[in-house]
C-alpha cells in the first residue's frame, strides 16, 4: 500500500467519523459536554495551583525576618550591625528601624497613642528587617539565617515572618496531589464514557460492519473510524474544557484582582498556560483514542459476517 493510499484511507475515515458526529448533533453534544466537564475540573485545579505559585512568587518579598536588638544598643552600633548583616550571603536587603521610628509608627497605626504616652521610656527595641534573597528562601536557609543572627550578642530574638508562606506552599502541594487524583478518576470516567459511546455505535452499525468484513475489510479498517471518533471526542471535549476554563477565569478574575489588591499585590488570574492546554488536549486525545480502542477491540471481534 502506498503512502498516498494510506493517507487517503485515514482522511476518509476521519471525515466519515466527523460527518457521523455532525449528523447526530444532540448525542454528540451531550457526550462532548460530559468529557469537557471531566477534563475541565482537573485542568482548573492545575490552573489554580500554577497561578497561586506565581502569586507566591510575587510574595517572595514578603518573606522576611525581624531581628530584635537588645534594648540599650546604641543607634550607631545598630547601623554597624545592619552593614554587617548586608554582607551575609543570602541577604538581599536590610532595613534598620530605630526604636524611635518604631514607636512613631506604632503610635500612628495601632491607636494606642494615649497608652504609650503613659510610659516613661520607649518599650520598643531597635529592629533590623532582613529580607533574604529569593534563591535562599527555603525553610532550611531561613533557619540557618535565623541562627546566624540569633548568635550575635547584641541580638535579643529573631522572629521569622514566613510560616504562613510555608503553610501556603504546603496547601498548594495538597491541591496539586488532589488535582492528580481528580485527573486520574475523571480520566477513567472519560475512558468509560467514550468506551460506552463507541460500544453503542458499534452495535448500531453491526450490519455495516458485517458487510464490510464480508467484502474483505480488515479488522484495522473496520476499527479505524471508531478510533477517529474517539479521538474527535477527545479533541472536542478538550476544546469545550478550554472554553469552560476561560469563562471561569473571566468570571473569577475581578474578585481575585480585588483580593490581591487587598494584600498589596498587582496579581491577576492568568488562565490556562500553554503547558496546561497541551496537557488538556494531549490527555483528551489519548483518553478518547484509548477508550475507543479498548471498546472496538472488545466488540468488533465478536462481529463476523453471517450469510
Amino acid at each position: 500500500m502506498s503512502l498516498g493510499v494510506f493517507g487517503t484511507r485515514h482522511v476518509q475515515a476521519l471525515l466519515g467519523s466527523l460527518g457521523r458526529l455532525a449528523r447526530n448533533p444532540l448525542a454528540t453534544a451531550l457526550t462532548l459536554l460530559v468529557i469537557g466537564l471531566a477534563l475541565a475540573l482537573p485542568a482548573a485545579l492545575s490552573v489554580f495551583v500554577i497561578d497561586a505559585q506565581m502569586a507566591t512568587g510575587g510574595f517572595g518579598d514578603a518573606i522576611d525576618m525581624s531581628v530584635y536588638l537588645k534594648s540599650g544598643v546604641p543607634l550607631a552600633q545598630a547601623q554597624q550591625l545592619a552593614t554587617d548583616a548586608r554582607e551575609r550571603p543570602g541577604v538581599a536587603r536590610v532595613t534598620l528601624i530605630p526604636a524611635d521610628l518604631g514607636l512613631q509608627e506604632f503610635r500612628k497605626y495601632s491607636g494606642f497613642g494615649a497608652a504609650l504616652d503613659a510610659l516613661k521610656s520607649n518599650p520598643l527595641p531597635t529592629v533590623l528587617r532582613v529580607v533574604p534573597r529569593r534563591a535562599a528562601s527555603s525553610a532550611a536557609d531561613l533557619e540557618s539565617l535565623r541562627r546566624y543572627f540569633a548568635a550575635w550578642p547584641e541580638v535579643d530574638t529573631v522572629q521569622l515572618d514566613t510560616e504562613w508562606v510555608l503553610r501556603f506552599n504546603a496547601i498548594l502541594g495538597v491541591l496539586r496531589r488532589l488535582g492528580l487524583i481528580t485527573a486520574a478518576l475523571l480520566g477513567a470516567g472519560v475512558l468509560a464514557v467514550v468506551g460506552n459511546t463507541i460500544r453503542l455505535e458499534i452495535l448500531n452499525r453491526r450490519a455495516e460492519i458485517e458487510v464490510t468484513k464480508l467484502v474483505g475489510g480488515s479488522n484495522a479498517f473496520v476499527r479505524r473510524p471508531f478510533l477517529y471518533t474517539g479521538l474527535l471526542y477527545g479533541v472536542g471535549g478538550a476544546l469545550l474544557a478550554w472554553v469552560i476554563l476561560e469563562a471561569a477565569v473571566l468570571i473569577l478574575d475581578p474578585s481575585v484582582t480585588t483580593l490581591a489588591q487587598l494584600y498589596g499585590s498587582g496579581y491577576s488570574l492568568q488562565g490556562p498556560t500553554g503547558q496546561v492546554l497541551a496537557g488538556l488536549f494531549g490527555g483528551g486525545m489519548a483518553l478518547g483514542w484509548l477508550g475507543a480502542w479498548v471498546s472496538a477491540h472488545r466488540h468488533l471481534r465478536g462481529i463476523e459476517p453471517r450469510a
Binding site: V5, T8, E208, E210, V211, T212, V215, G217, F221
Partner: peptide
C-alpha cells in the same frame, strides 16, 4: 443483497474498493 440502507448506491458499490485501498 445486504446493501447499506443509509448509503447511496455509489458508496455501496465502492465498498470493496475502499476496503482494498484503491485510489479515489
Amino acid at each position: 443483497h445486504k446493501l447499506l440502507a443509509d448509503r447511496p448506491i455509489f458508496d455501496n458499490v465502492a465498498l470493496p474498493l475502499v476496503v482494498a485501498g484503491a485510489p479515489l
